[in-house]
């Protein structure tokens, strides 16, 4: 075990106890698409004891340009199944649990209750609203991200802090039609999510709390914006 994680164990502030903490951690990744293709391998490789995957879709040829977790031979295979196989090969010392379903109001609380941290790799606002509501109710931390074209955004939401609706409540436009996504942009933002997850679980560094980090690959550049809890937020405030 020590040899597998040697490069982590050489990190400042990273002790064998830190690694044991990760081994006891339970992380749920909701969505195994472009973001999940980066988040999942990094979490599993880092030694998260239990990684759950919520995904009901099957691998499609149009996924493979950015969902690098899958191979061409996986086309038609349920993503949860293909991802689990790939991840188990990456690190057989940890547990991978597939939830081959969509996250819905009827199952969200039961699924999320079994995990310490949730990573949002979904592809629609309805799922994020449900994640937000469920994480508020269960007091679970979660890491939001979304990508479109050359752009991505990521932020970390902790119990007691601003919620996703505090940030997203301005206006209420419907989800845009599916846009193009440059594959590495999803990989880059997913990598930030995985980093935030490992930091949150190990208490390392400063998290992206009350901060929205965005990447615009056309500039190219990062920008950071701050936000606060909205006392009138309909999800976590007075409504």
């Amino acid at each position: 075990m020590t040899e597998r994680y040697a490069r982590q164990l050489n990190l400042p502030h990273w002790t064998p106890e830190t690694q044991q903490h990760l081994a006891a951690a339970r992380v749920l990744v909701v969505g195994a698409g472009g973001l999940g293709s980066a988040v999942l391998p990094y979490l599993v490789a880092a030694g998260i004891g239990l990684t759950g995957i919520v995904e009901d879709d099957r691998v499609d040829l149009t996924n493979l340009q950015r969902q690098v977790l899958y191979d061409t031979q996986d086309i038609g295979v349920p993503k949860a199944e293909a991802a689990s196989r790939r991840l188990a090969a990456l690190n057989p010392d940890v547990e991978i649990r597939s939830h081959r379903t969509r996250l819905e109001p009827g199952n969200a609380a039961a699924i999320l209750a079994g995990y310490d941290l949730v990573v949002d790799c979904t592809d629609n606002s309805a799922a994020r609203e449900l994640l937000n509501r469920t994480c508020l109710n269960l007091e679970k931390p979660w890491i939001h991200a979304a990508v479109s074209e050359y752009f991505g955004q990521v932020t970390t939401l902790l119990p007691g802090g601003p919620c996703w609706q505090c940030l997203s409540g301005t206006g209420a436009p419907a989800d845009p039609p599916p846009a193009g996504i440059l594959g590495p942009v999803a990989g880059l933002i997913g990598s930030v999510q995985a980093t935030e997850a490992l930091k949150q679980l190990t208490g390392t560094g400063r998290l992206l709390v009350e901060r929205l980090l965005v990447w615009d690959a056309l500039l190219p550049g990062w920008a950071e914006f701050s936000y606060r809890r909205n006392p009138d937020c309909w999800a976590c405030g007075r409504g």
Binding site: G31, N124, A146, L167, P173, V214, F225, S226, Y227
Partner: peptide, 26 residues
């Protein structure tokens, strides 16, 4: 100016406004 705001926020000279669409992809 890098802080969360609303449509009704009044602006002063030199302010920097950033606007984002709904971003849904994952």
């Amino acid at each position: 100016n890098n802080r969360h705001a609303g449509f009704d926020q009044e602006l002063a000279a030199g302010d920097r406004v950033a606007a984002f669409p709904p971003v849904a992809g994952g």
